[in-house]
Design a protein around this nucleic acid. Structure first.
Lengths: 221, 221
DNA sequence: TGCGATAAAATCGTATACGATTATAGGATA
DNA sequence: TATCCTATAATCGTATACGATTTTATCGCA
C-alpha cells in the first residue's frame, strides 16, 4: 500500500534528521561516517548521500576531506527562519484552507488530535507531530516549491523549539492557538487563518527570544 | 587563493547543473549514471551524491531503483517561482544595498560589465552571468538562509529564461533595468532598488507568460 | 615545560565489484 | 495481429577496498 518504495539512502535522510533534531548528534562535532553507518547497519555510500541531502536542507555543514558537522544553533538564524516563515506561511495557509479536500481536512484534524494526546502523555516527539500538523495545513495549497521551502524552514525551526521551548513543558498557549487555527482553516476562513498564523508564529518567536535571552544570562555553561 | 577546496562530488554539482540549465540533459529521460560518470571521468559514487543534491535543489526527480530524471518545465512552476521571488527579493535586495561593502559593490559592478559585454558578443552563458549578477546584489544582505532559497529560485528561473527568452536574442529592456538597478543599489537607495526589483521580476515574468502562450499556440511539436 | 617536526593512526572520498531490480527482446498462444 | 510469458540485457543501489588527506601521538630539542 506504500505509495513509493524508498531506497536505503532516502530512509537514512529521515533517520539522521531525527537524530539531529533530538540532539543525538551534537553540533560542530564531526560525524564519523563509518561509525554512524555501522550503527545504522549500512555502508558509508548511502549514508553519505543522505548527509549530502541534509546539508542541502541546512542541517549540516561540510568541509572537503573533513566531512560533515551539524550546524550550530544561533539566535540570528532563528530570527531569519521565523522572518521567512512570517513572509511565506500566512498566504500559503490561506490558499490551502481554500483548496483542502475532505481527506486533507481529516488528516489535519487527526494530526492535531494525535499532537494533543501526545502532549497530554508528555511523550517524546511532540516536536515532530507539531511540524506534521503545521505542514498538513500548508500542503493542500498545491504549491510544491513553496511547500518544500516551508518544510525545510519548519525543520530548522524545530531545532530551536525542541532545544529551548519543549524542555519548559506543556505549552497551553500553543495548544489553544492550534485549535483555533484548525477551526478557522476547516471553515475556510482565509482572513482568520491568516491572522492566527501570524500571531502563532510571532508568539512562538517571542517565547524563543525570551528563552534565548534567559539562557544566555543564566547558566554560564 | 581558493577559499575552499572542493571534492569531486561538489564539482559535479556545478557541472551537472550547468548541463541541465543549457539543456544538454533532457527532461523526463532517465539519467544513465554509468554513462554520465564515464563521460565526466569519474565513478558513480560522487555523481550520485551530486544528483542527490540537485534533486534537493528541485532540478531532478528520482524514483527508487529507477534513478534520476530532469524535472520538466511547466508554466505553473514558473508562476510559483516568480511569485516567491517577488515575495523575497525586494526586501532582501534593499537590505543588501544598505550593507554592501566596497568589495561587494565592486563585484556587482564588475559582474554587470561582464554580463553586458557577453550580451554584446552574443555568447553562450548569458543566463549564468545574469544569475551571478542578481545574486551579487542579494548576497550582502547577510541572510544565509534567505540567500540559499533565492539562489535556488534563480536556478529554477534560469531554466525558463534560457529556454523561452534567450532564444529571442538581445533583451534591451532587461539590460537597461539592470543598469538602473545597479545604480540605485550602489547609491543605497532602498526604496528605489526595491521598486525596480519588483518591476524587473514582474516584467520578466510578463515576457515569459507571453512567450509560453505564443509557443503553446504556435508550433504543434 | 613547551614547541616543532616526524611517524602512526584514523578518517575521508572515490573506484571497483556485485546482488537486486527494472527494462527489453523473443517467442508461444489465442 | 495482439498479448502474455519468459529469458536476457541493462541499469540501479550498496558493500567492499584502497589511496589520499587529516588528525593524533611520539619524540627531539630549546
Amino acid at each position: 500500500m506504500s505509495i513509493a518504495a524508498r531506497n536505503v539512502s532516502e530512509q537514512l535522510v529521515d533517520q539522521v534528521r531525527a537524530r539531529i533534531l533530538n540532539g543525538t548528534v551534537a553540533p560542530d562535532r564531526p560525524i564519523r561516517q563509518d561509525a554512524l553507518a555501522a550503527e545504522m547497519g549500512v555502508s558509508k555510500i548511502p549514508l553519505r548521500e543522505a548527509l549530502a541531502r541534509l546539508e542541502q536542507e541546512g542541517l549540516l555543514a561540510s568541509q572537503a576531506n573533513r566531512g560533515f558537522t551539524v550546524r550550530p544553533l544561533t539566535a540570528v538564524e532563528a530570527e531569519e527562519v521565523y522572518a521567512l516563515r512570517l513572509k511565506l506561511e500566512p498566504e500559503t495557509i490561506a490558499i490551502a484552507a481554500r483548496l483542502a479536500d475532505a481527506g486533507e481536512q481529516q488528516a489535519a484534524s487527526d494530526l492535531l488530535d494525535q499532537l494533543d494526546s501526545l502532549t497530554d502523555s508528555g511523550g517524546e516527539g511532540v516536536g515532530a507531530f507539531n511540524r506534521a500538523f503545521h505542514l498538513a495545513l500548508l500542503r493542500p495549497a498545491g504549491r510544491p516549491v513553496t511547500f518544500t521551502i516551508l518544510e525545510r524552514l519548519h525543520v530548522l525551526s524545530e531545532r530551536y523549539v525542541r532545544k529551548h521551548l519543549e524542555p519548559l513543558g506543556r505549552n497551553e498557549r500553543a495548544n489553544e492557538e492550534h485549535r483555533e487555527m484548525l477551526q478557522a482553516w476547516l471553515a475556510r476562513d482565509e482572513r482568520k487563518i491568516c491572522a492566527l498564523t501570524v500571531v502563532h508564529i510571532g508568539k512562538t518567536l517571542d517565547d524563543l527570544r525570551l528563552q534565548l535571552q534567559t539562557e544566555s544570562k543564566g547558566p554560564p555553561g
